[in-house]
Design a protein around this nucleic acid. Structure first.
Lengths: 133, 133
DNA sequence: CTTGCACCTGTAGTGACTACAGATATTAGA
DNA sequence: TCTAATATCTGTAGTCACTACAGGTGCAAG
């Protein structure tokens, strides 16, 4: 007899979230404790599928799990749009800051990489930069 | 009698690397085991100071510790300029990839953040995006 | 000689998973 | 119905690069 329940494997396939990760989300309280078969296997409902999709999208947008938790309304109540806005803008700022840091890095690396690889082992510009007093 | 030896605290102040981090580098073999006072405190030489500066600069350039290890020549021999070039270019590529990922994120976040915060709690665009089927 | 700071070791926590090991459940096919 | 293959279970440890204790000892200045 074929079961139409959502096993963890199907949930994983459906959402693209690793099985281990789903269990991890349950452990940290991001996903609810699901029902179980007589044998102890997890079975999920479409509500839980929706929730995992929500989490997945949040993660795809780079929100840390604590933000996702807030967005899900697990802290206290579902957040107001203003609260959501605050969380989103704050996250956007950290993304921007990371980009600017990485661009600085990129310029430095590109500069020394360009000099490098020209053969002279006794005066490598990368090693020079790293060794500079 | 004042000692002119480099204690771990001075080394830390000199390089900007945390004391705990210095001990961690020692534990993972990135920094050598230094001399000790009779009482067991670490004492460093200028050679070790130079090495830590090298590591610090490598980290500032975003190289993972394993790359720094290679650049220091701790794997086998000191790397040739060509090897250094390979490591640097590979790192540069991952930096570029990260930037492009983050820019994609930035655009998505900016777009939904702009829609959001306009007051309507029943149709928040961020929550909408996350909840989309 | 005391006081206060620096330093010691060892362990656990961070974020967000991932990777086992060793056991049990379930399902598809014969 | 039995069996073999696959799926899932729990629990722990590992990843990266640190950081943060706790509880103890060393050392230098006044």
């Amino acid at each position: 007899m074929m079961r139409y329940d959502l096993t963890i494997g199907k949930l994983s396939a459906e959402t693209g979230v690793n099985i281990e990760t789903i269990r991890y989300y349950e452990k940290i309280g991001l996903m609810p404790k699901p029902g179980r078969t007589d044998g102890g296997h997890r079975i999920y409902t479409p509500i839980e599928l929706k929730r995992l999709r929500f989490i997945r999208r949040g993660r795809d947008l780079g929100f840390p799990l604590d933000d996702v938790r807030s967005l899900l309304g697990l802290e206290d109540e579902p957040p107001s749009c203003a609260e959501v806005h605050t969380i989103t803008v704050r996250h956007l700022e950290t993304v921007k800051a990371k980009i600017s840091d990485l661009k600085k890095l990129e310029r430095q690396l590109a500069k020394i990489a360009k000099e490098c690889g020209k053969g002279d082992d006794f005066k490598c510009p990368v090693i020079d930069v790293l060794s500079a007093q």
